[in-house]
Design a binder for these strands. Structure first.
Lengths: 361, 361
DNA sequence: TTGTATGCGTTATCAG
DNA sequence: CTGATAACGCATACAA
């Protein structure tokens, strides 16, 4: 074959064989040098090293994967990539994965269960396992089934199937804490803007809202629950209906910060003031929450840590060859700022919450 | 070998051979069925299909890559993942890549040139090419060298090496437009908060600021240029020095929105008002810009489109086997809101700029 | 149309 | 310590 003469032919990438020939050793020795395994004589080691740099040799990861059946790649499947929350989750995953010497294969925008499952399937063989965020229960269950010698960590609450580990945020507890706080500072009528139907996180937050109200002896009412979809504009659009409500709510708990932002914006347009005329709170503690006017009272959720811990969990799971400790819940903490009617200083927590880098543009 | 009897043994993943045996054909035929190539008799086709579904067979992508030397994977290398900008870039890349049937392998947090280059190298063999964002010129040049039968698209301005295609945002033009606008509405003394030293985008924006001032017959002065690093807190911290400046600037142009946000927050703490006492503008048009109080005048940059177009460009480049049309620049458009002293309605552009999904938590 | 055989670049198992 | 050589799972010329 022409393989022997292709010296400078078309700048083909050097293979292990080229290095072996150049170093005057066998491919086995070259392999040993690059894997640090076994003992290799000093002389051979040096010759291989220099031949490798000379030829700009870099082991072919694909071939390596084929023989070892390990890809050193972690699949990440998300329903979407929009917004700060996902961005932070990925950042946390990326960081932890790198520390563990894994690369990440990201895939998102999977509207329905089928799409998500098919993606997950197509990743089999390309990745050593999966970290998947399932927006609804059907998807969670479907992904949970895949765990066939294929470690999966699900980022989804209320998932009690035993086939894989899962991790989530304390949506319910966070919502309860928020409502309890609003009640404690005197709010009597508290409305809620709900998240998209079917979304598990949204449902958990709604459940927290209702539970906390009932526990306080208040009654819940559909008239106080408005349908949103996690977007700013849905929050904006709820404004009219909320203000027309009789009696008018003194506080509104939005299922996430984006909707709270939209609502505050809309309220401002009507001439009413937050929090003097009506209090507004959110959930997530996105970056802009503390910079708004008024600063937004919300529930802090550490998306970065969620991602990081999902990876750690996955690593354990992969080493054990199966689920290790079932479900894990990350705490959600109440962050009281001005939008709910208390008198914290406007930029009180600017410095403590040090953001790393604002933009790369 | 035990391969023959391992029927239900340990739920090993089925290979092409298992399917061939089950369907009573050769592996070549199975391969043909899965690649749609050549003609396969209807009978064989059906038998293979049913055997495949029966065994839950899924072609091993790694092996396929080894023979075809195509991975169907696009490497994405970013300096960081923090903030809305990167998040949107990835979203754009992910979307376009999926359309082109590519997966994306993401890697970020590469402080220095060496780290970034080593990552890029280690990806060789795992990906069919790279889309890389280089924060500084050294890195850009280094990555540009890699293009060795390995298509690369650089997301970086001012990159004039011919070894690969590149794409960037009109930083210079955007900054010019901003300064021209500020001058046109009567601002006489305009300060600037610069981005991190060495960052090409930051430098281009600074250049635009200076050029626009000079073109208007104004003189530039180091006393009016303050050092920031793209973080909110750096903007916050610049406040004191800016207000002490004599004469006090009537407007401040921050090299990105995050710094503008920090500055506005700090100004509010001093009791001064934006824009009545001092105008503040930014760059990027992050989501929160329009919801701030006052809404932020800024320069809109479509990060999503940047990512999308980088992929299209990469596809072309990969098909041609080399750079196709050199450098491409995405427009940056001035978005005038209230923070610079004009009288636009607060939520004027809430609806036109429809955000998709606010959060997935 | 179908099957056989070879190679992709490595790792890993054995003898030497 | 080192070198043949057999997998790994698949694609593909080539032969039938």
């Amino acid at each position: 074959m022409s393989r022997i003469h292709r010296a400078q032919e078309v700048s083909q990438v050097a293979t292990i064989r080229d290095v072996a020939r150049a170093a005057g050793v066998s491919i086995a020795t070259v392999s040993r040098v690059f894997n640090g395994s076994s003992r290799v004589s000093e002389g051979a080691y040096q010759r291989v090293r220099s031949a490798a740099t000379q030829l700009d040799y870099c082991p072919n990861e694909t071939a390596r994967s084929l023989t070892t059946s390990r890809t050193s790649t972690l699949g990440v499947v998300l329903p979407d990539l929009y917004g700060e929350f996902f961005s932070e989750v990925i950042r946390g995953i990326d960081h932890a994965a790198r520390q563990e010497h894994y690369r990440i294969l990201v895939s998102s925008s999977h509207a329905d269960t089928d799409a998500l499952v098919s993606i997950a399937r197509s990743l089999r063989g390309r990745v050593d396992g999966l970290i998947a965020m399932a927006p609804d229960e059907g998807t969670a269950a479907a992904i949970g089934q895949m765990t066939d010698n294929f470690p999966v960590v699900l980022m989804s609450p209320r998932f009690n199937v035993q086939t894989c580990d899962s991790i989530s945020i304390a949506n319910f507890e966070g919502a309860c804490a928020m409502i309890e706080h609003l009640l404690s500072i005197g709010h009597q009528t508290i409305a809620m803007i709900k998240g998209p139907p079917g979304n598990i996180d949204a449902e958990e937050r709604l459940r927290g809202y209702r539970t906390a109200l009932r526990d306080a002896g208040k009654e819940t009412s559909p008239a106080l629950e408005f349908q949103g979809d996690f977007t700013e504009s849905s929050g904006y659009q709820c404004c009219g209906a909320i203000l027309r409500c009789q009696p008018r709510p003194t506080a509104v708990f939005a299922a996430n910060d984006y909707m709270a932002v939209g609502l505050i914006c809309a309220i401002g347009d009507t001439g009413l003031r937050v929090p003097q005329d009506i209090a507004v709170t959110g959930f997530d503690d996105i970056a802009l929450a503390q910079y708004m006017n008024p600063p937004l009272t919300t529930v802090r959720v550490d998306a970065y840590e969620l991602g990081e811990r999902a990876v750690r969990k996955w690593i354990c799971s992969a080493q054990e060859g199966g689920p290790v400790d079932g479900h894990e819940t990350l705490p959600a903490t109440l962050v009281v700022r001005n939008s709910c009617g208390t008198r914290e200083p406007v930029a009180a927590d600017l410095r403590p919450r040090q953001r790393r880098r604002g933009s790369g543009t």
